[in-house]
Design a protein around this nucleic acid. Structure first.
Lengths: 272, 272
DNA sequence: TAGAGCTATTGCATAATATGCAACAGTCGG
DNA sequence: CCGACTGTTGCATATTATGCAATAGCTCTA
């Protein structure tokens, strides 16, 4: 079995270090990934061909997956699609926990690199929810409360999360209620907000020039999944004194890099 | 290995008939299910205990799963939570396809039992989308176009999908635009619609008394996942001539039973 | 209708693979 | 500093997954 040797060699150099992977489980997962990736139902032959294993093996793996509800047969015939169990699993789970987990090290790195407080946020209705943060030992620090809800339209995280919204969607989201002015800089119209969003899409990051809290500047970048959808945001906050305009580019670099890395982690997929 | 013998015996008598299940893949899936079900991170020892396998085996299975991103370790330590891959899989997938698949046989059975056209629908914004249908050989039949979009507020499917909405949420959904009157019976206010919804929650099914198309009566029931959320609807349509009031109870029984069965299928989970 | 060519499915012998055991390492709490 | 616990690795064994080959079901076409 020459394939096996090559395979384990590739696997070995990977992440954890070198605990051997269980072959049949790994193959089962590959089947799930393959079927999940394909828009059309996948035939048994196709599975076997891609994994380079015998049809009978593919059949038995697929059958096991089907018994557990991870695969299903479209009404028509015998090709495979993902089953209800995958859905169930993802539904009953609190994903912000997972996000926080995989992103935590990057968050910490960002805090260290910039020497400022870093936050991780997701959208929750008309608010941004901080699901994790990492501080640095500063006398004056932006208090980062994980679990805190802040408005979308006047924070860097909020605006990063809105990056792909146009004026119409913004209107649909915020309704006709006027936006509350938190500081002199708060953006108050969806029209202006839409222009901000456009800029965010172009630059890759959002700013908050004391639009929510006086004396605080923030930068945040949208985290996108492999399909390009914004699923979260990562950024830093600092008192204006420590965040002069000339540092923006430097900070932005760190923030967008972190966002990209996390996005790739979420969308990560092993070869073969 | 006495555990193994007992285990395979249990597995063998299961569903599809008797193609043997692949042990290690099956165990890996059990781990996923277990971790997915648990609110708290799961320790290696716990995994081994529940599956009744050795700690080392559990470790190797979990490691394989982790390599593929199906498990992850919370920032803290070495316990397991579900990983990003599960999310990815569920995200990039069109679930209405899967729903149609698992529900198709029930849909067909419903059409046969009632001898009328049966439909399966999901909510798509402010519309109900028919994702599958099954007809019976009638001269006069309600044409069931899979892929068709119909209004939510004046169809049995639509109202079933709105079952858990109160007047406020209805207002948020439909805005202040007045509802279009399709027939003399169309419900035109969110207040009245909210009362319908309440009735649907109590009775378990929604009706359409020619509120969208004259001369057509429909019944539909919400399909709920294990958490109780409405995810789809199933129902039948018939010309008024074939659908006298006295048959409503009979039809409703069929429809709600089908909805329940599909919901259980979606939420299905293997023992052990 | 028969048959060719396809795909799914099952039987079986073999060897590779997953497994349990046992030893090791790392961590926490006293 | 020691003991109890959990995670991790080595290794020998036999269980288990695998590939091959044969069968069964299906579709298309001649």
């Amino acid at each position: 079995m020459p394939t096996t040797a090559t395979d384990s060699a590739r696997t070995a150099r990977k992440s954890t270090k070198e605990t051997p992977s269980i072959q049949s489980l790994d193959r089962g997962i590959q089947i799930l990934e393959l079927v999940g990736r394909s828009a059309l139902p996948v035939s048994l032959g196709h599975l076997a061909a891609v994994l380079e294993i015998d049809r009978s093996s593919a059949f038995r793996l697929a059958t096991t997956l089907k018994r557990r509800g991870f695969l299903a047969n479209p009404s028509a015939g015998k090709d495979y699609i993902l089953g209800p169990s995958v859905w169930r699993l993802s539904r009953q789970y609190d994903w912000s926990k997972m996000l926080a987990t995989v992103a935590h090290e990057h968050l910490k790195a960002l805090a260290v690199n910039t020497n400022e407080t870093a936050h991780l946020a997701v959208r929750e209705g008309r608010k941004a929810l901080f699901i994790d943060h990492s501080t640095t030992p500063h006398v004056i620090a932006i208090s980062g409360q994980t679990g805190e809800l802040v408005p979308l339209y006047c924070t860097s995280h909020g605006k990063a999360l809105l990056a792909d919204f146009d004026e119409q969607s913004l209107g649909a989201l915020f309704g006709d209620k006027p936006l509350q002015a938190w500081t002199r800089n708060t953006v108050l119209t969806t029209a202006k907000l839409a222009r901000h969003c456009e800029e965010i899409r172009v630059r890759g990051y959002a700013t908050d020039e004391s639009e929510f809290l006086d004396g605080v500047r923030c930068i945040a970048a949208p985290i996108r999944d492999r399909a390009g959808l914004v699923i979260a945001s990562i950024g830093i906050s600092a008192p204006v004194a420590r965040f002069p305009a000339e540092r923006e580019k430097e900070f932005a670099g760190h923030v967008t890099a972190a966002a990209l890395q996390i996005g790739e982690l979420i969308g990560a997929q092993h070869k073969e």
